[in-house]
Amino acid sequence: MQNGNSFWSTATLEFFIALGVVIGGSTIGTLSTLLTGRPPLYTMADLAGRLKIWALVAALGGTFSTIRAIESGFLGGQLSVVVKQVVLILFAFGGSHIGYLIILMLTKGEG
């Protein structure tokens, strides 16, 4: 798979990709309130919540390669591969959730 240094750089990259998808998507998506008349803070918080799962998927580059690696790790008896994939999923989830919390903090929990 990857050596230790590359693994942690990949995990960090996935964290920040997920963080960026939530913050960027909810921020840019809020511009729609200029056309729709919806309340901007509520819309931003709502979008951040809806983008969390998509940020996770985007950070992992689609879930099929991750699921395939977990499957081959289990079937091949390589638990280190499974553990690495789970850690990558946790890093991506952490990034998306922290992005969501940042948006909630900026909108003062309007969602």
Results as ranks from 00 to 15, higher is better:
F74P: 00
A58Y: 02
F15V: 01
A55M: 03
L79K: 06
T33I: 08
V86W: 09
I98R: 00
G4I: 15
L90F: 15
S26A: 14
F15A: 06
L31G: 13
S65I: 06
S65A: 14
G95K: 01
L101G: 03
V21R: 03
V57F: 13
G111E: 11
F7N: 05
Q2V: 10
D46I: 13
A11N: 01
F93M: 13
S6E: 14
Q78C: 04
N3R: 09
G99Q: 03
T30R: 08
T33P: 08
I28R: 04
E110T: 14
G20V: 00
A48C: 04
A11I: 06
K84M: 11
F15R: 02
A92M: 06
F93T: 12
G29A: 07
A92P: 07
A59Y: 00
V87L: 15
S32E: 12
G76N: 02
L106G: 00
E110Q: 14
W54D: 08
I17V: 15
K84G: 02
I67N: 07
V57M: 10
L51T: 05
I53A: 14
V57L: 12
G24I: 07
A45R: 01
I17A: 00
G77C: 04
R68C: 08
T10A: 14
V87K: 11
K52T: 12
R68T: 11
L79P: 01
E110L: 14
S32H: 12
V81W: 09
L35C: 11
T43P: 05
P39R: 14
G20P: 07
V86T: 12
G37N: 09
G4H: 14
G109S: 10
L47S: 06
G77T: 01
I23G: 01
F15C: 02
G20K: 00
L47V: 06
I102C: 05
E14P: 01
V22F: 04
S9F: 15
A45G: 13
L104A: 10
G20Q: 02
W54V: 10
A55L: 02
L60W: 05
G73P: 02
F91L: 09
M44P: 04
S72F: 05
R50L: 12
S65P: 09
F74N: 07
K84W: 07
S96W: 04
L104D: 14
V82M: 05
G4S: 15
K52P: 04
K84I: 03
T30N: 12
L90D: 02
A59T: 05
T66P: 06
A58E: 03
G37K: 07
T36F: 10
H97G: 08
T43K: 07
R68K: 10
L19D: 00
F15Y: 13
I103R: 01
G24F: 06
S80Y: 12
L41R: 13
G99R: 00
S32L: 15
S65V: 09
N3T: 08
L47D: 02
T66F: 06
V22M: 04
T33R: 08
W54E: 05
A58T: 10
